[in-house]
């Protein structure tokens, strides 16, 4: 996290940060800013180019770049939207050799032009083809869809606001449901089990709601620690040896304690890397 903070994001226009399904996403609309950000990210140690995909968003074309830092396995996603009539994106194949063919493929199939690419030729289709078949205006067979129309460019501010609103509403609804469940649990004699996996809202709320419904019971009994990603049956046993059986205990570990625990159990930075404490906190909040 420390290196991430060192990246200067202030002067980059049109940059939005968001987290989607656990992925950190930097969204951009300005090609120059994209190039600058990529250079800074490389300097910040994002050395492993995972993937570059072109997506036709129906209002424009999007380049999605997935980066990884091998030193701490941090992952990052970059979005850059360009309009159909100016599908030009600065190439980053000189920064990461690994995106060379990905850019050629995105040019070939989606039609994004990567400026500065050394050898921007078609890669999968033949040189004399003219269509970019992965655009939505073409059907699966590569023929133009007669009444296809591009969508207007989205208003990102409005969307962000809407999202916030939706998240707030979801949280409220979850609270209500939790309260209802509590009341129900107080009435019902036996607690409901096994309802967890079936119907779930998107991942951001997964942990909270499922546990609210499933485990309305008292806090002092042992929790199901395997709900935390990275903890399996083996580690549950090890943690039990150290006297840790509940989310609460795990969530409230200080850095020193965590380090001691890791040393004792031979974990090697797993608590921080897999964010056990954060996960445990989320689960704990969901429970109470």
């Amino acid at each position: 996290m420390s290196t991430e903070a060192a990246i200067n994001l202030e002067d980059l226009p049109t940059l939005r940060q968001q987290t989607i399904c656990g992925e950190k996403v930097y969204q951009l609309e300005d090609p120059t800013a994209y190039r600058q950000l990529c250079e800074r990210l490389l300097a910040a140690g994002y050395d492993f180019p995972q993937c570059l995909s072109g997506v036709d968003m129906e209002y424009g074309l999007r380049t999605v770049l997935h980066l990884r830092r091998l030193s701490d396995q941090a992952e990052l996603t970059l979005w850059l939207d360009v309009p159909y009539d100016r599908p030009h994106v600065p190439s980053v194949s000189d920064l990461w050799g690994g995106v060379d063919w990905h850019e050629r493929e995105a040019y070939d199939l989606v039609g994004i032009h990567y400026d500065g690419h050394e050898d921007l030729r078609r890669i999968l289709l033949e040189d004399h083809w003219t269509i970019h078949p992965l655009q939505r205006r073409y059907d699966t067979g590569g023929y133009l869809i007669p009444d296809w129309q591009a969508k207007p460019w989205p208003d990102w501010d409005a969307i962000a606001k809407e999202k916030e609103e939706a998240a707030r509403k979801a949280a409220e609804a979850a609270e209500k449901r939790a309260a209802a469940a509590k009341a129900k649990a107080a009435k019902a004699v036996k607690p409901k089990e096994g309802e967890g996996g079936a119907k779930k809202p998107p991942l951001s709320e997964v942990k909270k709601t499922s546990d609210q419904v499933a485990k309305p019971k008292a806090a002092q009994t042992a929790d199901d620690l395997t709900k935390i990603k990275g903890i399996g049956a083996h580690y549950v046993a090890l943690l039990k040896e150290q006297g840790i059986t509940r989310f609460e205990q795990l969530a409230n570990l200080s850095d020193d304690e965590a380090k001691r625990l890791e040393e004792k159990m031979n974990f090697k930075d797993r608590i921080a890397r897999e964010q056990w404490r954060e996960q445990a906190r989320a689960l704990q909040e969901g429970k109470s």
Partner: peptide, 10 residues
């Protein structure tokens, strides 16, 4: 041939 160039249309 490339789709659209083969005399057929949708």
């Amino acid at each position: 041939a490339e789709p659209g160039k083969d005399g057929r249309s949708l």
